[in-house]
Amino acid sequence: MSTNRIIFLMLLLFVLEGSLVPWLIPEGFGGRIIPHFVFVFVMYSALYANRHQALLLGAGFGLLQDVVYYGHLIGAHFFLMGLCGYFAGILMEKKRATIMMALTIIGFACLLYDTGLFFIYKVFRITEASYAWALTNHILPSLFLQLAFALALYVPLRRMFESRSLIAEGDEE
């Protein structure tokens, strides 16, 4: 699938993530279950395409997120999404990830991403909550949402990103 189609899909997802997904989350859980679907896309790109694409997609969509929802500071998502994508790309450079491996890496990346965000806001004294609270309040509940999303779209996303990558597809599991 061409990069343009991927970007278009991600833009659509970005729009839906802010406007439609909040309605699907039960009332009272709005601040606890937080979708990061675009980030899951970036991770798939890191796992099945290459790290440079993941870096660019992550930085691009992170910046978009930062600018559109500018509340306190710009740059947190920009930096973290790009970085997480790039490092996952380096980690999986020569390997083809199986489904369990992909989900594990996406899970850990989500943890890293949310933790990073939390500490950026903590360092600039925008939030005063403790990390232990943040972990149980929103990081872990949203992790499950992200994993469910990643699992649900594993096959189409893998196909989508893999068809772009140059590595031969002979060693599928």
Partner: peptide
């Protein structure tokens, strides 16, 4: 829309 960031 609503931002998908717990701290913002």
């Amino acid at each position: 829309s609503v931002s998908n960031d717990a701290n913002n």
